[in-house]
Design a protein around this nucleic acid. Structure first.
Lengths: 152, 152
DNA sequence: ACTGATACTTTGAATGTCAAATCAGTTGAA
DNA sequence: TTCAACTGATTTGACATTCAAAGTATCAGT
C-alpha cells in the first residue's frame, strides 16, 4: 500500500486545486460587475449556454440537481434579468431556457476567466506536452464516469 | 482572443473534473461505512489530519471558513465521535483538535479513495510524463495563489 | 489591576438543496 | 372520444452550510 512520493504530492495538489478553484471563481465573481450572482447561479448560466435553449429538465441533469432546485434557481435568475423562460410551442409542459443579453455577457465574462486559468495551466509547455496533459484529464474523466456507473 | 481548439477542450474538461470530483466524493461517502458524514465534514476531518493536533483557528484557515462555522462543524463531529477537543495546557483559550480512532479510520478510507483517483489520473504515463503533469498542477496552484494575492 | 488583543462560541439570517405533494398538459388504450 | 397514466414543471417544508456580528473567556503588557 506504500505510495510513491510523487503520487502523494500529486494527490495533495490535485485536492487543493479542485477545492480552491471554486473558491477563486466565487471571489472573482464577487469583485466583478456581476456581484449579485452566486457561484451556483453562475454555473446555472453556464449550463444553459450561449446559443442553445435547453429544457429545464436538461439543465437540471447537467447540474446534477433536482427539478425543484432548478425551478427555484431559475426563478431568481429571471428576476435578476439573466434568463428567460420560453414556452415550447409543441408541448406546453416544457419550459425552454435562454440567456438574456445580460446573461450572455455574464457567460462570456466567466469564459474569459476560464481562458486565463487554462492558459496558466499549460504555461511553458509545447504542443506535445499539452496533448499529454489533456490525456491525463481524460483519465480523470474516465475515473469519474466509472464512479458514476458504479452508483446508478 | 481566438482560442485554440485544444485549449477549449482542456477548459471544458478541467471544468467538468473539478466540479464532478466533489460530487463523486460525496456519492462515495454516502455508500460507505461513514454515510452519516457530509462532504464538508469529511474535509474538516481531512484538514485536522492524522497525527497533528492543530488549533481550531488553524483548521478554519485551512478550510477558508470562519471560526464560527468551524465551531459548529466541530460540535457535530464531536457528537458523532470523529473528533476530540483538547484544551491547550499553556493557553486556556486555545482548543486543539484531534481525530478519534474512528476519525482516523475515516481519514484513511478517504485517502484510499484519493489514491485510486490519482492512480487513474497518471495511468499509462512514465515517470517523465508524471513529472510534467505535476508541473502543470503547479502552474494551476500558482494561478490560484496569484488570485488569492489579488484579493486580500 | 486595567486595557486591548486573541481564541473561541453563540446566534440570526441567507442560501442551496432535496423529497414529496401538486399542477398542468400530453398520450395511448379501451 | 375519453379518461387513466405519464411527464415536465412548480410549490412547499425541512434541513445543512455558511457568514457576520455580538458575546465570553483568557492572555499579555503596562
Amino acid at each position: 500500500m506504500a505510495q510513491r512520493p510523487i503520487m502523494k504530492r500529486i494527490n495533495t495538489k490535485l485536492e487543493k486545486v479542485y477545492r480552491d478553484i471554486l473558491r477563486i471563481e466565487e471571489t472573482e465573481l464577487r469583485h466583478s460587475r456581476f456581484s449579485n450572482l452566486s457561484i451556483s447561479e453562475m454555473h446555472t448560466i453556464d449550463a444553459i449556454g450561449l446559443h442553445a435553449t435547453p429544457t429545464s429538465r436538461t439543465v437540471a441533469q447537467r447540474l446534477h440537481v433536482t427539478q425543484g432546485t432548478l425551478t427555484v434557481a431559475i426563478k431568481h435568475l429571471v428576476t435578476k434579468g439573466y434568463v428567460e423562460r420560453v414556452h415550447d410551442p409543441k408541448d406546453a409542459r416544457i419550459v425552454n431556457l435562454q440567456l438574456t443579453r445580460k446573461g450572455r455577457l455574464m457567460y462570456r465574462a466567466h469564459q474569459a476567466f476560464h481562458q486565463q486559468m487554462v492558459a496558466s495551466f499549460v504555461q511553458g509547455f509545447d504542443d506535445h506536452d499539452i496533448q499529454l496533459i489533456e490525456a491525463a484529464l481524460d483519465n480523470l474523466m474516465a475515473f469519474i464516469n466509472e464512479q458514476d456507473q458504479k452508483r446508478p
